[in-house]
Design a protein around this nucleic acid. Sequence first.
DNA 1: CCCATAACGGGACCCCAGTTTCGTTAATCG
DNA 2: CGATTAACGAAACTGGGGTCCCGTTATGGG
Lengths: 205, 205
Amino acid sequence: MGSERSEPGSVRPGGRTARVRAAVLQAAGDALAERGFAHLDLADIARRAEVGKTTVYRRWGTVTSLVADLLVDMAEQSLSRTETGSLLGDLKANARLVQRTLADPRQGALFKAMIAAATCEAKTAEALHHFYDIRVEEWAHCVQQAIDRGEVPEDTDTHEVIRAVSAPLYYRLLTSGDPLDEDAADRAAEAAAAAARAGAYLRSK
Amino acid sequence: MGSERSEPGSVRPGGRTARVRAAVLQAAGDALAERGFAHLDLADIARRAEVGKTTVYRRWGTVTSLVADLLVDMAEQSLSRTETGSLLGDLKANARLVQRTLADPRQGALFKAMIAAATCEAKTAEALHHFYDIRVEEWAHCVQQAIDRGEVPEDTDTHEVIRAVSAPLYYRLLTSGDPLDEDAADRAAEAAAAAARAGAYLRSK
DNA sequence: CCCATAACGGGACCCCAGTTTCGTTAATCG
DNA sequence: CGATTAACGAAACTGGGGTCCCGTTATGGG
């Protein structure tokens, strides 16, 4: 009495428990990608993962919190970052990476579904924000290098430049039916670079 | 036999039927805004609209197709467009309009929910795309005027410039917890204007 | 003004997502 | 290696979201 009930998997996270988590997250990603966020039930995920339905309900409970866990998992696996020596080159590399990810049928659907899930619950939204914070943070360095090289003004908000590259690609993914091609990626990078050089992303208003 | 079953409301769209549609769409907007897209059932909407549950299921059937209809309804009501005489001024006006809409608790939640719904079904996605096509088309004129004034290069893709203004605002709404303030709107407008002047949105690749 | 019928609405029904129960398996510690 | 118990999983159960049936209302045409 009075003792806090800890989350399942926190006391014995090894062996079987870890295997179950991996299988369920894998199945959740598959289901999310091919069926979409709306018509998705945990029973189906349990079936795919060859795991007891009870287990899924006990450990995650709702679709949104399962997606939140999936996001935590994805945030942990970092992607490599290329360096080309110029701001435009680096931003293009970033834009191409984002574009390829979103254009891929499975990954694209997965990201759409995760964004949808994040609009439905605060916890999931937080996980999504954290995911993007990490990605943005990683790439912000290349903007800092551009500042050091004198390519862009001194107190440019480095994070904001990186976000400016992704924004049009996500906007197109969500609000238009047009395909996400390499031209779109290059245009996003060029626009962000041009705006950054012109001082549109200065920290001081 | 062989006769097509027509959608309810298409043969007798007047009087009661129109009243029911209006009440249901109103209720759907309210429910979407305050409860979110995920935990939303048509029975609850019927209750709010003081309409028979059967009616809602017969005419719309699923949450996503109800959202699609809501989008058609919203696309019909056009918003006024200001003209300031300069590209930056017009883009700022547009950015502020989008920012105020998304920052408003009810409207913001509604837009999030509609985007989420659009990721779940093709029909709804189409309705959403159409909605934005109309909005973008309306504001594209002010970019054309900027071209005529010689502010931006000749074959600038006018629609793309307008989308570039909205993109960062939507991106922030969905992927970050930061508030959508006027600074964000101004920055979006300035970035788009700077990139447009620099020729980042030329039609010819 | 009146008729044919499109569309609405109440209520019974049913299926399955989500819960509860309890027995089984295997992770961790000594 | 053996005891303890966290975590899993099969099966029975339940409640509410979604469907069906059929009577009622009121629209639009003649």
